[in-house]
Computed example of a mutant assay.
Amino acid sequence: MDEAVLWEKYSKTKDPKIKEQLILRYMPLVKLIAGRMAMYFGGNVEYEDLVSYGSIGLLDAIEKYDSRKGVKFETYAYTRIKGAIIDCVRSQDWVPRSIRQKAKEIEKAYIDIEKEGKIPTDEEVAKRVGLSLLELQKLQEKISSGMILSLEGFLDQNYETRIGGLEDFVSRPEVFVENEELKEVLRQEIDNLSENERMVIILYYFEDLSIKEIAQILGVSESRVSQLHTRALLKLRSRLEKYIK
């Protein structure tokens, strides 16, 4: 059955059989998103669990989607599915306390170094937190899977505002303006990252590439991509902190 016809019938009847067809039609999208995110969560969260979490987002998207607004369902559902995965993983609080604590120390080091008017380097940050360069790089790999939650949530929140467009502006202009300002700040801060850091952020968050694909494009190892990802997020979070409190 044609997609448009399927949605028209479901919006009128809420027929469970049609809903089941929609779920089957869009389940590959859930698996695609879960597969991308699984590579950052590593062995801490099972792929099947991520698919299960994403399915919750898919069901929510099917119930709330309004085809009359002119937004493709895949676009609308993508944010819902990814948001459901992030919320479920965050609720489990699986990132070890020691890793979270060390991440805060590293983030503070980035902030302090920038306040001193210097460009934070891995060597300088490692020295500030009392680690060797190799220890810092290994820690960045461990932090990466947890750090993804912070920027994903920030980007998705603003992405939904972008989807809402004029409707959001009319109903809540102060929120719309604030989010637009945050997006501009974020864009500027991404531009201020090193070339490789900027590429990792753009390719992962905006081009939807996997860590393996990014590694091939940059000509580096997957672990190096993970390090670059963490370093970029730490920098962005430290710079955005004053805007999102």
Rank of each mutant, 00 (worst) to 15 (best):
Y76W: 10
G70C: 07
T75F: 12
A61C: 10
A84F: 13
E107P: 01
P96C: 03
G43P: 04
S67G: 03
T75G: 07
Y53R: 07
A103Q: 07
D87R: 15
E46R: 11
G54I: 10
Y78I: 02
V51Q: 01
E105D: 07
A77D: 03
D60R: 15
E46L: 13
G43C: 07
I106P: 00
S91I: 06
V89I: 15
Y65S: 09
I62W: 11
L50H: 02
T79F: 14
L59E: 07
S67K: 14
Y53M: 07
L50V: 01
Y78N: 06
S98I: 09
A84M: 06
R80D: 10
A61M: 07
Q101A: 09
I85L: 09
E107K: 15
D60M: 13
S55P: 00
K64C: 03
A84N: 05
S67W: 02
C88P: 01
E46K: 15
I56D: 05
G83H: 10
K104Y: 14
T79D: 14
Q101T: 08
R90S: 09
I81E: 02
K69H: 12
G54D: 02
D66H: 08
Y47R: 08
G70I: 03
N44D: 11
Y76L: 11
L58P: 04
A61Q: 09
V71T: 12
S52A: 15
R100Q: 11
Y47L: 08
R97P: 03
Y78H: 13
Q92E: 07
S55H: 11
A103S: 11
E46W: 11
L50S: 03
D49N: 12
A84H: 04
